[in-house]
Design a protein around this nucleic acid. Sequence first.
DNA 1: AGGATAGCTTTACACTGTGTCAAGTGAAAA
DNA 2: TTTTCACTTGACACAGTGTAAAGCTATCCT
Lengths: 185, 185
Amino acid sequence: MRATWEMLDSNPGVAARMSDIAKKANVSRQALYLHFPNRTELFIATTKYQDEVFNVDNMLATSRAASSGQQRLDAFVEAWGSYIPKIYGVAKTLMLMQATDVEAAAAWDTRMRDMREGCEAAVFALSRDGQLSNTYTEKQATDVLWSLLSISTWETLTIASHWSQDAYLARIKQITKTLLVAQSE
Amino acid sequence: MRATWEMLDSNPGVAARMSDIAKKANVSRQALYLHFPNRTELFIATTKYQDEVFNVDNMLATSRAASSGQQRLDAFVEAWGSYIPKIYGVAKTLMLMQATDVEAAAAWDTRMRDMREGCEAAVFALSRDGQLSNTYTEKQATDVLWSLLSISTWETLTIASHWSQDAYLARIKQITKTLLVAQSE
DNA sequence: AGGATAGCTTTACACTGTGTCAAGTGAAAA
DNA sequence: TTTTCACTTGACACAGTGTAAAGCTATCCT
C-alpha cells in the first residue's frame, strides 16, 4: 500500500500498473494478488490506509468542537482543505476509476458521502446559530459547500491555476463565508 | 461521430469500445480506423463536431454583445452553463482520458483554455466598468469564475446533488454576482 | 463497355495489461 | 523434523487496441 501511495502521489491519476507497484514494493506482481483480489481493491485499501495514517476522524473532530457556527464552518474548511493535497494522488485515481469500475464507484461514493456529512453538519451549526444566509435552504447550502470543497475545485485552483495551498485555503474560506454566512450590518 | 456522440451521451465516461461504436454506426470496427487513427482522435473529432453543430462561437458571441460588465458576466454564465449539459457525455469522457492519454490531455487543455478566455473576457469587462469586487485581482477572479463554471462543478450540483438545470443556472448566476460584482450600497 | 477508384468487409494477428493457476522454495514456527 | 507461511517462477486465458492484407461492390470516368 505504501508503494501504491508513493506511485500515485508522484504521478496522480495515471494508470500505475500492477507490475510497476510490485517492482516498487520489491515483490513479484503475483504476490500483490495474494493480498488484494484486484487492482481496484488495492487502491481502495490504500485510501483507507491513508485515512488511518492521517487519523482523519481526529482531524475533523476539531471542527466539531468550534463554538459558533461560523467558526465551525471555518474549521471544517481548514481541515478538509488541508487534507486534500495529502490524499490527492490516490483520491484522484479512485475518482477516475469510478467511471469504469463499479467497486471503485462505490468506494468513491462512500468517501464523498462522508465528506458531505461534514458539510451538512457545518451548515446545520450555522443554521442553528441563525447565521445561515437566507438565500439558501440547508440542503442548497450543503450542496454548494460540498461542491466548493470538492477535489476537482481544489485541483482547478491549485494545480491548473497555480494557486498556493495557502491562497487556496484563504480564498475558499472567504468565499464560503461570503456566500453562506448571513451578512449582519 | 454521431454514433460516438449518442454512445457517450447515454453512458458518459464509461469506456465505450470501438466495437460498440462501430456496431451503433452499422460499420465494421475496422472501418472506424479508416477515418480516425485511434480511439482518442475519434473522441476529439466528436467534440469538435459538437462545437460545430451547436455553433459554439455564435453562442458565446451573444455574451460579448452585452453592454455592462455585469450583464456580460451573466450572459456568459448563461451561455456556458447551458452548453455544458449538451456536451457533458463526450466532454466527461475526454476529461477522463486526459489522465492516461497525452493527446486527449492536449485536446482537453485547449478546450479548457478556450473556456478560460471567456471567463477572462467577462472579468475584464467587469473590471473596465469598475464593477469588479476589490477583493479580487483580475487573475484571481478569472480563476474563481473558471472553477465555478467547470464541468465538475456542474456535475456535482446537477447530477450528484440532483439540482435541475434551471436551479443550477440561477444559483451559479447568483454566486458569481455575489462574489465578483462590487456591491454598491 | 471497361477500368479505376472509393468505401467498405472479412480474417488474422501482434501487443499490452489484468487476473488465474499450479508447482516450487526457503525460513520460521510447532 | 515436519508443517506452515509468504513468497517466487512460469504459464496461460481473456479483453481490447491497433495493424495488415486481401476481397468485394457500386459509382465515376472516358
